[in-house]
Structure formats: C-alpha cells, structure tokens
Simulated scan of single mutants.
Amino acid sequence: MKQPLVSILIPFKNTELFLKECLDSIVQQEYQNWEVQAVDDASTDDSYKIVSKYAEKDPRFNVLKNSGNGIIEALRTGFKECKGELITRMDSDDIMAPDKLGTLLELLLNSGKGHVAVGQVKYFSHRGISDGYARYEQWLNKLTAEGNNYSEIYKECAIPSPCWMVFKEDLLQCGAFEPNRYPEDYDLTFRYYENGLTCIPCQKVLHYWRDYDTRTSRTSEHYAANYFLDIKLHYFLKLEYDPTRPLVIWGAGNKGKTIAKTLLEKKIDFKWICDNPKKINKDIYGIKLDHYRILNHLQDAQNIITVANEKEQETIKSFFTVLNKTPMKDYFFFC
C-alpha cells in the first residue's frame, strides 16, 4: 500500500484534561506517516503547553494559534499549513482506535478520488451514555456500515466530524472550511453530498467520542437545534426544492412552525398538514392546517416531515410507500 502523508486537523480549547490521551492515541497509530496541525482557539488552561511539549519531542506535531476566533477560523488556520495529500479531523477530547488512520486511508486509496472514507464511532463517558446519544450512535453506525450516510442527511449530521478522511483536492472542491455556517461539521457533510462524494462503507469502530457536560456541542450556541434546522432548510431549498411541484410541511410542532415561518418570509408557497385532530383546520400564521390525507389527491408533492416520534415516522413511511413515493425525492425527514 502507498504511504501518503495524512494531515490531521485538531482545533482545541481548554481540553487539558483530555489532550494527552487524545495525542497519545495518534502517536500510537499503526499508520505512522501523518502530521498534526493543532490550533489553539484561545485556551485559558494549559492546553497550549501540553501540545507544545508534544511538538518539541515529535516534529510531526505543529501547534498554532488561531488567527481568528472560533472553530471555523481554527480549521482554516490549520488547513493552510496542511502538507498531506489526505485530510482528516480529530477532536482534542476524543480517542482514535489504533487502526483508525490506516483503515480510513486504505478505504480511500482503494476507492480513489471522489470518495469520503467514514468510520464507525462509539460514545464513552464517566457517567454512562444517555439514550439519545446511544440512538444517534446506532443510527450513524448503521448508515456508515452500508455507506448510505446521505440517505437520511436531513435528519441529523450523517458523517461524524472527527471520523472522516478525504483527498485534499476533493476537500478544496467542496469549499473546505470557507463557509461561516454552523454547525460546521453538518455543513461540510452537506457539501460532500452536494459535490457527489461517495461514502465508503465501513464495518469498524474507529473513533471513541467522549461525552461530558462542558463539551462544545453541549455548551456552544452554534450547536443549538435552530442552527441545525437552518442548515437543513438552506440545503433543501438549494439542492432538492422544485418550485414546479407543490411543497408540503407535515407537522405543526416547533420545527414545523419554524420552517413555515421561514418559508413565508421567503415568499415560498406551501401546504401545511398534520394528523392531530386538535390542530386540523387551525389557522397558524395565516395558513390553515389540512388533514394529511389531502396527499391522496395532491399530485407530485415534495414533503418535509417534522414529526419526531419514531413510531409515527414508521406510519408515515408506510403511508408514502402505499402512494409509491420515494424517500429523498418525494419526502424528507427533518428529524
């Protein structure tokens, strides 16, 4: 197997408790032709000192100060210094499986450009993993095992930010870290999808995702639900929406209302449906909610589903199956 240089981007901020374990897992990789571009995003603890000690001992580590502010700027700062033919990311509080780099690299070299290698993930925590994270892990790994990550991309981020690898050339084609759009990992996943990068199936757990109370995804406003919904609608309107077809929102909860409000602001016509007897015929934002069975007579509609209950989602899928409708063409689950 060829042994090209792999560049590992690691933005970090105040993760001194976990950095050594993270960096040691990189040093202990079975594949050794790598470099680390570690970017300090204004840490106030000893994180910068810890990474600097690794850089003093091992020239493969390069530690930088963020030229801007926030994780997107940190990724840009590090990416400018990347010398590798292949690019991957790592979170400074997580752990790599020993065969992570080698496995992703082999998958990518065997498949060639135009692909993204993705590994399975496992959450760990000193207090145990919540049911929500366990379900997300199971969902994500099932998609990754089959290489079908884009098939449910409007539900949630379908590629884990610290467990992918691409050719640098392909990353540049996708816009790398240029957009100022959060969550940045979800936005990049959509750009892989938009540019036609094929996900390579992977059966292995390659990344251990640490969960704790002060993890950025738990504390930063940039990872709040409204940011995820903004990205979903942005890319739906850009990549999927066909103004010659009727547009339908199914569900009148918070997500349904947020989408409806945005579409009204954009002056995009839509019909609004639900299966809740208390809401049918109700007027919200000047739009009357119809019974979902209007879809039996509505020709060639595009449907955004905002119903979160998993049992109800299965019922909705069955309904669309009877109507010979296709997921990711005729209907899109937004949760």
Rank of each mutant, 00 (worst) to 15 (best):
R127T: 15
Y136G: 00
P160L: 14
A145C: 06
K142Q: 14
F177A: 00
P179S: 00
D213F: 09
Y212A: 08
D213L: 11
V121F: 04
Y150W: 05
A145P: 00
Y136R: 00
D185S: 07
E152R: 14
Y136W: 10
Y136I: 00
Y186K: 08
W209T: 14
D185F: 03
T198A: 10
L140H: 11
F177S: 02
H207K: 09
C202L: 01
R181T: 15
Q173S: 15
C199D: 02
A158S: 14
A176P: 04
R210E: 12
Q120H: 03
F124H: 15
D185Y: 03
Q120T: 03
N195Q: 13
D170N: 05
D187V: 13
V121H: 04
T214V: 11
Y223R: 15
P179W: 08
Q138P: 10
L143Y: 12
K122Q: 13
N149T: 11
R135S: 13
F167L: 07
I200S: 08
G147W: 01
R127L: 14
Q138E: 13
L188V: 03
P179G: 02
H207A: 04
N148H: 11
E184L: 09
G196W: 09
K142C: 03
G147I: 03
N195L: 04
C202N: 15
Y212G: 05
G196R: 06
E194A: 13
L140P: 01
I129L: 03
F190K: 05
N149I: 07
Y192L: 15
K204W: 05
W164S: 06
S220Y: 12
Y154E: 05
K204F: 09
C199Q: 02
